[in-house]
Design a protein around this nucleic acid. Sequence first.
DNA 1: CATATATGTCAACATGACTGACATAAAATC
DNA 2: GATTTTATGTCAGTCATGTTGACATATATG
Lengths: 166, 166
Amino acid sequence: MTDIKSGINPLFLREEDLRQGIELLYFAYRDFTAEPDAILAEYGFGRAHHRVIHFVGGNPRITVSELLAILNITKQSLSRVLSHLVREEFIIQQEGKQDRRQRLLELTASGVALERRLSESQRRRFADAYRNAGAEAVEGYRKVLMGMISEEDRERVFGPKSAEDE
Amino acid sequence: MTDIKSGINPLFLREEDLRQGIELLYFAYRDFTAEPDAILAEYGFGRAHHRVIHFVGGNPRITVSELLAILNITKQSLSRVLSHLVREEFIIQQEGKQDRRQRLLELTASGVALERRLSESQRRRFADAYRNAGAEAVEGYRKVLMGMISEEDRERVFGPKSAEDE
DNA sequence: CATATATGTCAACATGACTGACATAAAATC
DNA sequence: GATTTTATGTCAGTCATGTTGACATATATG
């Protein structure tokens, strides 16, 4: 099943290597969230807050529904962390001008500061790993993971470079 | 931050690219757990059960403390899922021969069957991504992620099995 | 005007982490 | 042989973050 398909079965498709790939992803993800988790705890925030801060930071004036589509959680789940972040003034909501039902989300100054602090930790980790692995390896990392994520996410998050709506 | 340290600052260390690397890891991890989660739900199991099944499957006769060290959770957390898996006969515990305090863990026949089913889903995903990306990219993927995980995990999980790159 | 959409809220529940305290059997050590 | 340490388990409570379902309100759209 892992094998016979095109007749060719490259070495890196051996079960053992696939298993290694799986575990690498598991451990890397775990280690990569550890440091931000510790920072967030200082503020009484959790990983869910981080995600919101990350994507609002990267997509200023994003709508609630766009954010929900990216995070792929229910509005009730988002509501808890988002209102928490708004209450503590890390995020502000502004009424949309074209569509006044929308609450456009943006980081406040403290939101930006926290976002920087959190992402710095992760960027450092990536920068180190990238530097040690080299440019070619980075390209490989991208290729493999890009092939693993759903087309939906790929288009939504990595596809567009053009500004749209609003 | 996107630092100047060795004087050289390769293109792939630009903040934008580091951010892409971070998001790739986030989305890949999420998508990669989705299918197993659905399978597990059939059995009334969750992601925590999957981890136990995975590492017991890959390390037959593992002790509880070794498993705890790999999973990096408390014994109380492990206890809940492990006893569940034992009760439903996906895992058996055998008294250690040298050390009779130990409960060596092993998958039962149904445990193996479930492990196969879960890992098949993830192996397929990896095999596809690997095949599309090519051998060189796979090597890059490994290099980057290996550099991102803690030394502890690297040694414990990837050390003894396969001698890793230079 | 009628309906669809964007957002929010209440309430209940599940999962999987955590801490802290305590229990038992067996191994290791004095 | 007595004591201490280790491997494991258990009770009880808490927290973060996900879920479903029902309902509310303002605004946009046909």
